[in-house]
Design a protein around this nucleic acid. Structure first.
Lengths: 216, 216, 216, 216
DNA sequence: AATGAATGAGCCTTCATTCAT
DNA sequence: GATGAATGAAGGCTCATTCAT
């Protein structure tokens, strides 16, 4: 019974993600979520206080899990370069595998509605701190010059976010993950991350670099 | 009389920007726009087909002008570095001076409503092409290595966009323009823009470079 | 146009009185009021803040007028007996001529809903004070012994109210006004109004007095 | 088991009285009754056909017992005066000791909902007959002049009812029972019950009094 | 052109009632 | 008998849009 409850909560959440992605939060009637989830309209209100709460839960449930998983992956890295790779790869892979969620995240969650904003800011701030932590670590390790953490974070998150939006908007998009390498190149340039390797680099430098990054 | 027509159109547009920024597009009744503009509700429908059209016009009118002006500024530049500076500076200055418009752009325009998306894509694409053009030019001039234009543009636009969103969301934000220099640093690094100077540079090149950028 | 507005307000009020009387406040959908008034559902919300407000306005508009009129009639009386007659006669006549309003007043206005109660208490208190004023005057004129004002008012209002409720509930009711004289007898007895005069009275005094009041 | 059934029925009834008194019948969800009674929502439907039935049962159970008890007390009285005292005292004491029930009786039972009205009328009519019986007895015993039974009953019940409503509505009410004596005074006056005067009364006194009432 | 009263479709939410466990 | 999750009908209210003036 508990399992069934859990299952219904998840089904409604999943249905809402797809419904919001298709119609947009404000244009999506609760009845649409209900029919997608295969439950009665009133049932939704047994699991969520109101429609707004459904949107908030989407973000907290899914983004929370995403960030937790990313934090774990980051803890296994030893260089800033590897950490950046984790971020880019995780971001793109996750969004690509959760297209509807990506749509909702990119578009619908940018609401000026204060209550929604507030609820979203939690997980988002965590993500921001994760990114800023990686940069700060890079600075501490002297892999990265002293730069403005906030601006650097804005660049990294903004770039990933924009790439995702582009992909979401495009009718026949290239895969998101195909952008991982070029995006990493840009980030490493922006953070002046190449220098340490320059000295050692020979003709095959680029190849080795990619090998090294491949298993991250 | 034509001027008056023009005036009323403008007044409604301005009112709508502020109203949408304050309440959000879907939560903003047409009556709110009307009262802010000092016209009757029905009058709005003399100048705009419907509410959706008002939102679309906001983007086309204001972003159009913004892009036209930026294109002109870009034509006066001779180096990629200078062009990047124009983009960052124009973007941040414009948004900072048009906070309500920035809010609408950052938040409200990110709707999945297909008709709205389509109408917005026009001006946005133009902006994208502008940015990609600058990068392409850099590549042509051999100031920038061959990189994926789309990804680079996503980085540049995404970074600017995210910085703006941050600023819009913040209660007591730093000025946007204070981010111009650090953001340019990042972009130049990402695009490997330092190289052209290398030949002329001595040992302390990097220091001077940073000094030079600092007071701009 | 103003007149039309006024007219529509009245039409909705009248429709609501009948609709509430027929179905009861809580069982009466706003759509029922609308159709009775011959307006669209939304129109009601141009004239009333919400459904509750319609009920409140019924009481304030109609009871207010009723009390004002009664106060005027009372000012023309010179004896307590005459004043009691005005009260009973006005109450019964008014209710009889406004059956639906009477139903709403007797039944629907007895709501424990605090907001409604509060709004109703205004006019009701005024009515109570009117009655208590009449009794107090009788005491001052030594027509009535010193008695508890509140209890006496409860008796008078309660009796009138209950008679009205009875009439409202009955399928084939006697006329309300047929109860005027016997009710007055009871009130006069309760307030010991006959005795003091007996001594001073001439033979035909009582007859004349009643003749005088009869056509009021 | 029968006792348990009985117990649960009573618990639900008691819970409903308090719930209805607090929230009002229509604003009170069945779930509120259930939680107050400490049973599941569905359980209520094992003991009552529906929500309406709960309200009806409240009146029939409680008012039935009240009337039965009053009838017994009345049978012990020998004078009309004593009987009136029983009525007033029983009514006020009972309501005072059952405040929630009083609230429900005064306010919530005055619904125009026809089914509810019908069911309530049973016990109420019994009460009315009790009162009218007392008056008739008084007339038979020549303690009371010939008066309209219905009107007299309306006065007595209406007065008690209104006093109770007043008490229920008041924030810091005087006790109800403090009104017993003054109310009795009024009733005795209304019914010309003044024993003390019997001795002094002349032969024609009663006749004149009735003449006065005759034309009503 | 300008108005703003009127419209009515549509949506969120509640809650009495049912029924599988 | 008892439960309480699930249902879905129903209703108050909003608001984009129209149109008579």
């Amino acid at each position: 019974m508990e399992a069934q409850r859990e299952g219904k909560f998840e089904r409604i959440l999943e249905a809402a993600i797809n419904a919001f992605a298709e119609l947009g939060y404000y244009q999506c009637p609760v009845s649409k979520i209900a029919s997608l989830a295969g439950v009665a309209e009133g049932t939704i209100y047994l699991y969520f206080k109101n429609k707004e709460e459904v949107l908030i839960q989407i973000f907290q449930e899914r983004m929370g899990a995403f960030i937790t998983s990313m934090r774990h992956d980051l803890s296994l890295c030893e260089t800033t370069s590897a950490r950046l790779r984790v971020i880019v790869q995780a971001h793109f892979s996750y969004m690509e595998q959760n297209r509807s969620l990506a749509i909702v995240s990119q578009l619908e969650l940018r609401q000026s509605n204060p209550r929604i904003r507030l609820a979203i800011n939690g997980p988002l701030l965590e993500y921001f701190q994760l990114i800023e932590g990686v940069i700060q670590q890079g600075i501490n390790l002297e892999e990265v010059p002293k730069i403005d953490l906030r601006i650097a974070r804005q660049m990294i998150f903004g770039s990933l976010d924009e790439a995702t939006t582009d992909w979401v908007m495009a009718r026949n998009p290239r895969t998101l993950v195909s952008g991982i390498e070029p995006m990493l190149e840009l980030f490493e340039g922006a953070l002046r991350l190449n220098k340490p390797n320059d000295i050692r680099r020979g003709a095959d430098e680029q190849k080795r670099e990619e090998d090294g990054n491949a298993d991250s």
